[in-house]
Design a protein around this nucleic acid. Structure first.
Lengths: 157, 157
DNA sequence: ACTTTAATTCTTTTAGTTCTAAACTAGAAG
DNA sequence: CTTCTAGTTTAGAACTAAAAGAATTAAAGT
């Protein structure tokens, strides 16, 4: 990896590993982490490849995936054949907004489980119901937090 | 898979796939899902193996991992050599409580990124700061939701 | 002591991912 | 029309993970 100082390398390593826990592949994670702390907002294919010291195909496939999932966007400038890539912050926000849906999925799974379980399991069913209720609480409270955040942003922006 | 009706099989398939998204392997996910809707609260090694139609070693390793991570617990009964396994709901609750820590990790990563980024990126830095603030908001609000849930439970239990 | 049962551990197979290297393609420039 | 540039696609190597099957251990029962 070139053109990157100690602390940026450390950032990429650590942040990429957080992203890998979310299901991104190592290179995809490193591309995202790199764009997050790059010294210009946009980076070319070659700059990414060089900085991360990866193969063209790995970078090409990684970029395709990220463009496809809208995590980055591409730009071209007149008189320059290269494409320049930057983070698409909107998608990040969308992902955060969709967390509620994720919790809803778990809550519904527990509902289904309670339906399929014997009613005789009184003690454990009541514990499961409590967990269900916590997911339910997340389901109702997260949108409140999100709208609080949105009004805060619209007023200051 | 034996001894499982249509709807339970469907539940296992669907719920296991939710769990796989959280990083569990297919068998581990299926063991957990199976225990969640089993017709007795405890199931023996063999019952799990048979119901999921998996190999002994796969079940053994899966159970070891789940015991290790405290997602299930084992019981033995006098005069019976077998061990019986059941869900450990406490751990599930612990996992829910630790979500705040996860968000804290992301918030800190963005803080670090803002530190390493050029101050010239005023527009995108302000967007990143907003995202940071949302994570921060989760970080402060989730514990409130959790304690609301806990008081609700202690009063009704 | 020996057998049976229950489960673990070890070895191998299979499947799939991630990445590289090299060939290829599309478009711009001369 | 040829050449260069930018990137994609293909083919395959290296690695990893999941699961199966076989061999082994540990404890209980006879």
């Amino acid at each position: 990896m070139k053109n990157l100082n100690e602390s940026k390398l450390k950032f990429i390593e650590e942040t990429a590993s957080l992203m890998e826990k979310k299901g991104f592949s190592p290179i995809v994670s490193r591309i995202l982490s790199f764009l997050l702390i790059a010294d210009t907002e946009e980076k070319s294919f070659y700059e990414i490849q060089e900085s991360l010291n990866a193969s063209k195909s790995a970078v090409s496939n990684g970029i395709s995936l990220l463009l496809d999932k809208n995590f980055i966007k591409a730009n071209t400038n007149p008189g320059d054949r290269k494409r320049y890539f930057r983070l698409n912050v909107e998608t990040w926000i969308e992902v955060l907004k969709s967390i509620t849906e994720e919790y809803k999925g778990y809550r519904m799974a527990i509902d289904k489980a309670l339906e399929l379980r014997s009613e005789k399991f009184t003690e454990s069913n009541s514990q499961l119901t409590k967990i269900r209720d916590l997911y339910q609480l997340f389901e109702t409270k997260l949108p409140v937090i999100l709208s609080e955040w949105e009004t805060k942003n619209s007023s200051q922006a």
